[in-house]
Each structure stands twice: as structure tokens, then as C-alpha cells.
Simulated assay, not measured.
Amino acid sequence: MVTSLLSTDDLSQAQALVAESGLRFELPYDDLVGVFEAGRLVAVGARQGRVLKMLVVAPAHQGGTLLDEVVTELVGRGYQEGIDSFFIFTSPALAPSFESLNFNLLVASGKTALLEYGDGLRRYLARYSRQVFPGSNGAVVANCNPFTVGHRYLVEEAASSVDHLYLFVVREERSLFPFPARLRMVQEGTADLENVTVLDTSWYAVSSVTFPTYFLKDDDPACAIQMELDLLLFATRIAPYFHIATRFIGSEPFSRTTAEYNRAMHRILPPMGIGVRELERKSAVGAAVSASRVREMLMRGELEGIAELVPVSTLDFLLSSEGIKIWDKGGDK
């Protein structure tokens, strides 16, 4: 029987079982469950958001149904919380074990494989089947927190050089402006561009899926591995479906992580048949336009200067009662 692991002894046994398998016990988690036999923990697993992790069965009990039981319990609990798709990161060598449990391999690189429980990616793509256009298309993937004239410039330039442009808005909710608000600003700010289609990334591009490190060695570059998986998934699953031949990006003078992501795109995508075109970031009021600059001005109450940095549609939203309720909280996300 699969049960929650809550007591100090439960946690100690879970930590020991995970360590014995050569993995690291990784916090945080939303659920931690296990199976006991004669008072000894023989199987363990955890869920953090949409990610299942630390799935371990003691050597003497492998080959049976324990792994399936633990996965089924974690997925069931996730469903009860409204989560509809689940992921696991593991080593490529272990991928077949999870494929036998209804996981689908999405992408694999040297040290890591990403699998999804069920057919979420297929359903995500099918949702946009009527928005697939022929030709040599392009893509922009952006957070738009909020949508600025810099974003608009990148989209205009990209759209002018391809048959059709897909503007993917990152769904993750780690921004000041929630996804529905960001999506609305993007849709309103690009409504006049006839060959631009705005889509959401779901969990399949720059996703909010937490990248765990419990199965990596201490010296493995986790961030670089996550970027590689993200770009390989885009190149092998998303780009072919939408006939995307070019990924457009803006230069990044501010964020080191985003700059590294840009470099990874230049390295990974062209060998896979996807061009990368990097445009110099648009400037206004003496500096490069950025969403972070807009957010800082909002926090300081410098509302007049914002009009130089965002389209009219974005400004209207920011100054609306709905917009003010979002940014006038003293937050710094």
C-alpha cells in the first residue's frame, strides 16, 4: 500500500533509500509517498508541481509493480489538485523503464531524458491544428511581462521576413503580470499584424516545469542541460509541426541567463535546420527597452515615462483598474 511519508522516521528512511540508489534527496516537494514492507521502506517517490522525482525501488524489490504503484499514487494526487500532465527527468538509460509505465519520451540528450505521463504534447499540438500554416515560418518565444515596444519591434521585424510568425507567450506564472494578462497585452499589441498568430507555450517551451538536479552529478551544469532539453524539444517537436524554419531573438544586455540561452540557440538550432536571427534590442529614452525597466518605473510611480516604452494597448491596460491592481502591490517579480 502506498502511503504518505510524514514522520521523522519516514523521512530518514526516504533519504537513505534515495541516497543508496546514488541520487540526491531534493527539496522541495508537494507529495512524498512510499511503500513499506515489514516496517522498512522499499519504494519512494515525490512530486513537485508537475514533476515526478526521486522514484526509487530498493534493489531486492525491483522488477515488480512497486514503481507503477508509486507513480499511480502521485499522478492520482496531482489530478486531484487540478494538474493534467506530469513529467519526469531521468537518465536516458532509465527512460525505457518509465515508457513501460505510460510515459512518453519527449526528448533526450547526453545525460538527460524528459518524459511525459500521457499524451499532453499531442493534445497541445492538436489544439492548434487549424492554426498551422504552410511555408517557411518563424517563431518568437517571449514572456512579455509586460508587452513593450521592444517586443513589438522584434515581432514586426520577424513577421516581415517569414510567411507566418508564431508568437509563443510563456505560460509560467513566475511573473508580476499573470499569464492571462500577458497574453491579452500581446494579442492586443499585435492584432494588426495579419501574419502573426499568438499561442501559449503550455509546458513545452521555456516552461515552468521545475528542472530537478537529484539525478545529476555535482559538477553537471544543470542550467545548460535544461536549456539544451528545451531547445531540442522545440526543434524536434514544435518547430516541425508549425513549419518553423527561423527562431527570432532579441539581443540581451541585461540577463546573464537569457544571454546564455541565446548562445545555446545559436549553437543547437542551426545544425537541426532551424536558423537563429538575433536582432539588436530597440532603444528608447537613451537606453535599451526592457520589460524589467517598465516594471521598475511602475514601482517608482514614473507613469509618464512608460508611454515611451510600451504600445498604446499595453499602456491602456497598465493604467486600467485591472492593471493597477496587478502592479500596485509593491511586488518585484
Rank of each mutant, 00 (worst) to 15 (best):
A264I: 01
A205T: 11
F215R: 11
L74N: 13
W203P: 01
E252L: 02
E37I: 10
F168I: 12
L233T: 06
A205K: 01
F103P: 03
S207Q: 07
A291E: 01
S283H: 05
Y261A: 03
L5Q: 10
R47I: 10
E194T: 13
T65N: 14
V294Q: 00
L94Y: 15
V276E: 00
V289G: 00
L6V: 11
L233N: 05
G120P: 13
A43K: 08
D68R: 14
A46I: 10
R127F: 14
H266R: 11
E302R: 11
R127Q: 15
A288Y: 05
E188R: 07
S202T: 06
G76T: 09
F36D: 04
N137Y: 07
D328I: 02
L17T: 04
L269Q: 02
P212F: 08
R247I: 09
F98M: 06
Q226A: 14
A159P: 09
F133Q: 11
V44Y: 08
N104A: 13
S136A: 15
K333M: 05
D218E: 15
V35T: 11
G118W: 14
G275D: 10
E69A: 15
G286H: 01
T213N: 02
L318P: 02
L154Y: 10
A108P: 09
M265T: 03
G120S: 15
W203F: 14
T148P: 11
F86N: 07
F215T: 08
A19Y: 12
E228R: 05
D192V: 09
M272T: 01
M265W: 00
F317H: 04
V196Y: 05
V33E: 05
